[in-house]
Simulated scan of single mutants.
Amino acid sequence: MKRPVLYLIIAILVFFLLGWYFSNITQYFIFSLVIAAILRPLTNRINSVHLMGQHVPRWLSILLSFALVINVIFLISLLFVPLISAQIQMISSYDLDYIYERIQNPIGRIEDLLIQFEIIKSEPGFLIMQVRENLVAGFGKVNFQGLINTIINTTSSFLVAVMAVSFITFFLLLENGMLRKNIMNLIPNAYFELAVSTFNKVEKLLSNYLVGLLIQITCIFSLAAIGLTLMDIDYALTIAMFAAVANLIPYAGPILGTAFGVIVGLSTGNFDQSNEITLMIFKILSVFAMVQVTDNVILQPLIFSKSVKAHPLEIFVVIFAGAKIAGILGMIFAIPVYTIFRVSFMEFYIGYKEYKIFKI
């Protein structure tokens, strides 16, 4: 094997070893690369604007891009303020007896069905008593000091991660291709065309994927918002926004969005009869069933199959590998990261098969 190829293999192994050892920094860097890829078109557009005969400075364009993203997140968060306020007021006025009364009818209906089909052999009222005992025991075991400490630690870790990713993303955008140029300078001339082709294909696929993802979120929000509004569900826009963002989490996201909608409907609705609860749940489930059919039949094939160009089984394995490595964020970023490595490997494999410079 020629020395340049051997050096390249050694460099790749060292890169993966360092990435594994400094896993936190690696995660921050990967997230920053993806965010920089999303913000670069916006930053370039702002940077191209002329003010008083001069381009907007690059650093100011980046800060304006950050400010726009923060404002969008802030406006989205405003949708949840009324819901959170209503839930806080509701919880502050609740007591265990009130909660017990609210769940007594649906639990009683479930118990009647279980006794009717002889799934359980107990006297009526057994299941509701078990729920009441567990409810009282659960409230009694809540460790509020531990809960506060967990919230503080989680918030601190989150803020550190946000600061690190923001800092790295800022300089990736500020360099505006310098990182790519420096990497290209390290590549021997014999592999230059192959490296350029790899970079171009990765950028194109990632761009298609990110644009498709934005379209998917918009479509899911629109469909869910319209459907829930027509079904006269309270906080329809809030539920739709949560479902659209949660859908970024593969496989688990649709379940989380549906569960959130049902929980919000149960906690904010006023029900005089038990069949009204069933009807409300049916309305929410029917809306999200329609949304998921549309997503699975139309949106998902367009986004994953055509943009990433990977088999569904590959996507499945990669997503769960990402969940194992970095939890929910790993699931979200698994496909973009996999795209980078997959395209790079395929391009170099094709180069090995077709070009004499890779031969032994």
Rank of each mutant, 00 (worst) to 15 (best):
M178D: 10
N47Q: 07
I350Y: 10
E175N: 02
I30W: 03
I151W: 12
A224F: 01
Y338V: 08
E101M: 08
S32K: 03
P82L: 05
I76C: 09
I350F: 08
G108I: 00
G265D: 06
I25G: 04
I233C: 06
I168R: 03
V69M: 10
Y209Q: 04
A67P: 06
G327K: 02
F170I: 05
I226M: 10
S197R: 13
S65T: 08
F341E: 09
K359N: 15
K324A: 15
I38R: 02
L63G: 07
V297T: 13
L213K: 11
F31Q: 11
Q87E: 13
K353N: 13
V165H: 08
I107K: 05
E193C: 01
L302T: 14
S157M: 04
A236I: 03
L213T: 15
I284R: 11
K306Y: 15
I103N: 06
E193L: 13
V160W: 07
F348N: 15
K2S: 10
F144P: 00
N189H: 12
L329T: 08
V287E: 00
W20F: 14
L33Y: 07
V308C: 11
F117K: 04
Q87G: 12
F345M: 09
T258M: 14
V343N: 09
E123A: 09
D112L: 10
I38W: 08
M90Q: 12
S156A: 13
L186S: 04
S344G: 07
W59C: 05
P254D: 11
L78E: 13
L68A: 15
S93K: 12
F117I: 05
A36M: 00
G138A: 15
L266R: 04
R3W: 13
D97M: 08
A195S: 15
N208Q: 13
F15T: 12
G140N: 11
L79C: 06
E314N: 12
S48A: 14
I38P: 09
T238G: 15
G146Q: 06
F139M: 10
Q145W: 02
R58N: 05
I25Y: 10
I220C: 10
G138W: 05
T268F: 00
P41H: 04
F29Y: 12
V343E: 03
E193F: 03
K353Y: 07
V291W: 00
F144N: 10
L114S: 03
K141L: 06
I25L: 14
I340T: 10
I120D: 06
L237W: 12
S286L: 07
I148S: 14
D295F: 03
S197A: 14
L127W: 02
L113H: 01
P124W: 00
F139P: 04
Y98R: 10
N105W: 05
L159E: 06
I99Q: 11
F320T: 03
V81K: 08
A190M: 11
P4K: 06
L78I: 01
L64P: 09
L68K: 04
